[in-house]
Amino acid sequence: MSSGDSGPSSSKQLVQQPAAAGRSPNQPPLLGAGGRKVIVLKSGDEEEFEVDLLDAMQSRTLRRAIEDGCGDGPMPLPNLTGPVLAKVVELFRRHRGDPRWADELQETEKEGMFKDYAPQKPTAEVKGFDREFVSVDRDALFDLLRAANFLEAPGLLDVTCDAAADAVMNMTVEEVREYFGLVNDYTPEEEAALRKQHEWAFQ
């Protein structure tokens, strides 16, 4: 899997998909293309990212799109901005072979597509990357959560949900509201009842 190593990390610049032209429309984009299997993702602000196809398959949303044959041209993802997509693409690259979803891939394998995609345990390096990945401010974290939700990528979801849980851990009610920008929509009586119900937690 050395092919993807240089790809997404340097994917800020606009990249044209090299093999797309030679393909027939019905054929799945990756089969028979030869050489590098890549797709291009286009963010809402028109930035394009070249992603190793196998990395993109981590996202169930992208996988569905690819299997439906949408992988030929740049795949528009209007609700993701460039910086978010750049981060996500980098995470996909690092999570290559993550058993959290690689097993799932192996099951759906067709025609040896993923034969070189052996699951491997996340290394300390990957874990470090994950930590770094979510070391962002709240708004950025929300963007990543939205992206994870939209892309349905288990690894990305795990990492971001974990960060959200970390953020809210041991906060008081008021702190949670402030951090997440939530507004109290209880009547005073309702809130008092809730606090009474879990009295032990508010001591």
Binding site: C161, V173, D185, Y186, W200, F202
Partner: peptide, 15 residues
């Protein structure tokens, strides 16, 4: 992923 007390706190933030 939260501990139980934090879940209770979260529950009291909004409906």
């Amino acid at each position: 992923m939260l501990d139980t007390q934090s879940v209770c706190h979260a529950a009291a933030t909004c409906s």
